[in-house]
């Protein structure tokens, strides 16, 4: 049985290494919001309590295995008079019940915090400056981010000013998805015919990852998004840029624009202020201002745009954009146009 102890040693080592790895990257334990922080605290408490109970029970089990399996004559059944059996049963029914009652109450206190909008420091205008409505619409396989109060529609990148409380509403355009960035806090499903709401207060500047976490079909693995938390001034200038009409095109970009407007593109994409009003695909009005595209799976570089236009399925198989069999010239012109949509 000692071999069992030996066998578990690499496992413990493994946990240690993994814990170190966990410390170095984005996870549930690197929160940027008080909501995620409170869940991380609760998880830590639970892991410690569960770990202690496990050590005690498993230790007892292994002790019994070692103690009662050697040095005793083999033979017929051993009988041990067990007095107070009823008392023992009551004791070990009550003990887990008490621990679980405490765990439940703590978790409910935290749940109450998570579903309550934090009080703003001021009232009226000051309060509304601290909150930001974001409408998230999940599509197979990309994310639409709308800011209804700001008149902004963008895709795959959610910008927010540091310190703001995001009042997020989540919807779906097709099947069930789930909106989740571990650093923000708990996930919430995007369900057709239903609007779900959640609250995050972002407190740390940075560029964070997130990803769909409800299986939603072929490209479920590549339905990513970025959460970009920036200083207020930077966010305000981003808002001004996004609110501006689409850029005026010259040269190659203008011929690209013409091609876009005369082609199949407008069936699925919107460019504000033009005849392109499709809603199946992402709004491209300020496409070039985004760092990534295609469900945040591709860096927004000239190279990748060209590859995408040559064959969208090559970069992200299964996505809903058809191969339009464009000529190299058309692709260059369209790429010029897309790169000019700042």
């Amino acid at each position: 049985m000692l071999s069992f102890v030996r066998a578990t040693r690499p496992a413990l080592l493994l946990i240690l290494i993994s814990a170190l790895a966990l410390a170095g990257c984005e996870s549930v334990f690197t929160p940027i919001s008080p909501q995620a922080q409170s869940i991380a605290n609760l998880a830590t408490i639970l892991f410690v309590v569960a770990g202690l109970v496990f050590v005690v029970v498993e230790g007892t089990l292994l002790y019994f295995v070692l103690r009662f399996s050697r040095g005793r004559p083999a033979g017929e059944t051993a009988e041990v008079e067990t007095k107070n059996e009823r008392r023992i049963e009551i004791a070990w029914t009550a003990a887990p019940a008490v621990v679980l009652a405490i765990v439940f109450i703590v978790s409910m206190v935290i749940l109450r915090f998570l579903v309550t909008q934090p009080a703003a420091p001021g009232m009226g205008a000051a309060a509304s400056a601290q909150t930001l409505n974001v409408r998230v619409v999940a599509h197979q396989w990309w994310w639409e981010f709308d800011y209804p109060d700001l008149g902004i529609v963008t895709a795959n990148e959610m910008h927010a000013p540091v310190g703001a409380t995001l009042l997020v509403s989540v919807e779906s355009a097709d099947v069930i998805h789930s909106f989740w960035s571990p650093v923000l806090g708990g996930k919430i499903d995007a369900i057709p015919g239903q609007i779900n709401r959640t609250i995050y207060t972002v407190t740390k500047v940075g560029d964070y990852g997130g990803q769909c976490s409800e299986f939603c079909g072929v490209d479920h693995a590549f339905m990513l998004f970025r959460v970009i938390v920036e200083p207020r001034a930077q966010f305000d200038s981003w808002v001004r840029q996004q609110q501006a009409p689409a850029a005026t095109m010259t040269g190659h970009a203008a011929s690209g624009e013409q091609m876009f407007m005369n082609g199949a593109c407008i069936g699925c994409h919107t460019i504000n202020g033009t005849i392109a009003r499709g809603t199946l695909g992402p709004n491209l009005t300020h496409f070039a201002s985004r760092g990534t595209f295609a469900g945040s799976t591709q860096q927004n570089t000239r190279d990748n745009i060209v590859k995408w236009l040559e064959d969208p399925q090559a970069l992200k198989s299964g996505n809903l954009m058809p191969n339009l069999h464009l000529t190299p010239d058309q692709i260059q012109a369209l790429a010029d146009y897309l790169e000019s949509l700042r």
Binding site: V28, F54, L100, V103, L114, P182, G186, K187
Partner: peptide, 26 residues
């Protein structure tokens, strides 16, 4: 008994709503 107990403990963490919101579907 040993392995099932670990599954039971992770089950309790999943039964607390806030932790479940983070780790469900992962």
């Amino acid at each position: 008994i040993s392995m099932f107990m670990i599954g039971g403990f992770s089950g309790i963490t999943l039964a607390t709503v806030p932790v479940d919101w983070q780790v469900t579907d992962t």
